[in-house]
Write a protein that binds this DNA or RNA. Sequence first.
RNA 1: GUGCCCUUAGCUCAGCCGGUUAGAGCGCUUGUCUGUGGAACAAGAGGUCACGGGUUCGAACCCCGUAGGGCACCCCA
Length: 443
Amino acid sequence: MSNDSEGKSGNRKPQILKGFRDYLPEHMRLRQQIIGKFRAVFESHGFEPLDTPVLEYLEVLTGKAGENEKLMYGFEDHGGRKIGLRYDLTVPLARVVAMHQAHIPLPFKRYHIAPVWRAEKPQRGRFREFWQCDADIAGAPSALADAEILAILGESLDAVGLPNYTIQVSHRQLLARVAVWAGIEEGLAGQVYRSVDKLAKIGPDAVVAEMVEGGVEQPAAAKALRLLVEASASDDALGFIRDSLGDDPVADTALAELQEIFEVLPSMGITGKAVFDPTLARGLDYYTGPVFEAVVEEPRIGSVAGGGRYEDLIGSFANRTITATGVSLGLERIIEVVREFDLLPGDGGSADVLVVTMPGAAAYAASVASQFRQAGFRTELSSQPNRSVGDQLKYGSKKGIRFAVIGGEAERESQQVALKDLESGEQRTMSVHEVIQSLQQAE
RNA sequence: GUGCCCUUAGCUCAGCCGGUUAGAGCGCUUGUCUGUGGAACAAGAGGUCACGGGUUCGAACCCCGUAGGGCACCCCA
């Protein structure tokens, strides 16, 4: 490191970038717990792990996120190459599938748990560096694949105990056909998606007004919206839209896909949580088919997961079309909910046992600690033999360690140890073997 | 990217209309207690009042800028 005099004794301010965070041990353990549950769900469906570099050529990343590209971190390296920090995990997946076609049998089912970066303005549950937990199926055009992704989404949220979430499901092409049916130019589809998406928040009149402002004819905007609202209110929203649109092969295909998804979901154990919501649109440009989003009402952080089918993204890197569908779980937002409702129990602190010692008995204590580890206990060996036993016990209880094992000179002489329960204060002296047995029985 | 609010000890906060040496609780350190923590008591450490500039005889307090945090948009996980 540099040896400039001003850096030597704490003159430098410890700073951290806006929207970036340190994950301290307590928070980190919760993150790992949640990640572990997601991974277990993904693997239970036979999904394989994947990781990719955090940096990509900028041109790999651009042209997929539409308006959102201004949120992408980019820079030039020392060789003049244009580099970007990945914005999501979906584009890297597309690159990987296109690049390693010879080694990836399709359908490819992979999961990817890793950080992504967006230069957004931070808020609760919104950071510039955040983790996504993605599960995708590439090379499977069936609605069954979409349904399985939805099932994985539901199972994941259930695994961490999220109490009140809803998975809204819609279809990009269905919305597009509704717009055309109402007389809206196809080029304005993006405007329709954005406006319609706000219906629940701002109400029908404001949605129409916004569409008109975006260049849509007033009667057409009102007509499209009326259909969506009436469909939402009807018992059979899909049937209502089908009857209204009449003969439209594209819309019929979309409707059939949705129908199949909803037929299969109960058999996958997902009932009630997933609902058709024709007003859901989603922002990312690359979605082309079914789209979905998991939202929670409390706390108000909006969507905790989102996804859908993207027909052409992989093809943009390859010489052929490979369709894919997948979901992104937002780790930070899910953690917010888990913390808000205290959904996950603690994991019992950093260790099960703290071995306390004192000068002259360090080697004995170290060998005792090894025996506990071999017996399967997470065992911390005190690093402060010169502090009083009291201080060491205090350290242990502060770290949430349940048991202290004292191995000092007296214990070494008798080849025993003292086991102390730091919660109750009870203490007994016995052999290491006996302590291990009693702890194993207590579990 | 736009608008609004906030920033005083490690943490949570007090600090009246600008007026001498900026306070509390918790936490921390030490002692009562030389191999036994959590309690009690006592003492102690710890602050360029986010940072930089300005107004003023005088600024934690007023003004401007920057950084960080929050909220609402926008968008999203």
